[in-house]
Nucleic acid binder design. Structure first.
Lengths: 172, 172
DNA sequence: TCTTAATCGTTAGCTATGAAACGATAATAC
DNA sequence: GTATTATCGTTTCATAGCTAACGATTAAGA
């Protein structure tokens, strides 16, 4: 999505700058337009790549971005508890609970209670779930490569590093 | 959310690299780990800032990121049709229809049919909606500045430019 | 003109999502 | 050892979000 509107050069329209300043009563030179661009562009790319992945790759097996991610986690780590999945994916435990219920219906994963602490539920991937992720992952990665190919190798490294700092500093 | 898991240096865990390569049957040197980092970090930051904004700023008036964005668009542009709002925000027309229905219930916006083409519905902001966005926007912008402050001014410009190229090349 | 095709917004039906409340279990306090 | 507190996952209930189907309207074709 796009909070702001940009012209062909990637700058905020002068008209919009003036309007924001006027309407919000923030003087134009107190508006941090670089911060605006960073936040807006990050959200826009994220929204775009989520839509593209779901449409072009994940829809083949009726998976959303998050359900794919959960399946990926289970594929790599074999067995993960609900709380950990929520943290890994930055969504609520309720969301994990619901999505894994759907994945369970499709027989892509199953639940098992930790015998040492019966409050904890572990999720694990089934053979069928494995088959699905092993079909989808190469296509997913190929799309990642395509999407990132707007940037050179060095630029990709730069972008990743800057974003990584935002993740760390903001504790995302 | 986080498709991949990273160590303290921001690299993918060696264990995970090996596992991906092994499970996906993609040779390690064919995996483009820079692309992986770029895509993952973008999504992670976007998810984090959306959650933070909704929790810290937008919840004061029960707005989601997208409903806030729609309200913003109407604030700046006075009157926008459904289809245009969908494009601006990279969501479906159905989503716009639903969210504006909620905004209408709260009396933050209202509908009017284009008399020249009766298929088109224009949305417009109410006085009450204006009051809400004028209260929230300065706080929203302040959070944008805080979130982006992990980066220097130059780095913000760099990040914005790289992301802008991804938006353009991928037509997001 | 009159039929066909295209476009617009809404609705229907589904999954996703979060906050809050809840029940079960474990850890802590005394 | 019992009472209190904390933690875990689920459920409930609301909104968000998608695709597909639909009804209304306009444009295009002959």
């Amino acid at each position: 999505m796009c909070i702001y509107t940009f012209n062909e050069d990637g700058d905020l329209l002068q008209e919009e700058k003036d309007t924001i300043s006027q309407l919000s009563k923030i003087p134009l030179d107190s508006l941090n337009l670089n911060a605006v661009s960073v936040v807006t562009n990050i959200y826009r790319v994220a929204q775009g790549l989520k839509n593209e992945m779901e449409r072009e790759v994940l829809s083949k097996h009726g998976l959303s971005w998050t359900s794919f991610s959960i399946l990926y986690d289970l594929w790599i780590w074999k067995s993960v508890e609900t709380k950990k999945l929520a943290e890994l994916n930055a969504v609520s435990k309720a969301t994990i609970s619901n999505i894994t219920k759907t994945l369970e219906k499709k027989e892509y994963c199953y639940r098992k209670t930790d015998p040492r602490d019966r409050r904890i539920t572990f999720l694990a991937i089934t053979e069928q779930g494995k088959k699905v992720i092993e079909e989808l992952y190469p296509q997913f990665h190929q799309s990642e490569v395509k999407i990132a190919s707007s940037l050179s190798e060095d630029e990709q490294k730069t972008a990743a590093e800057l974003l990584r700092r935002m993740i760390r500093d903001n504790q995302y």
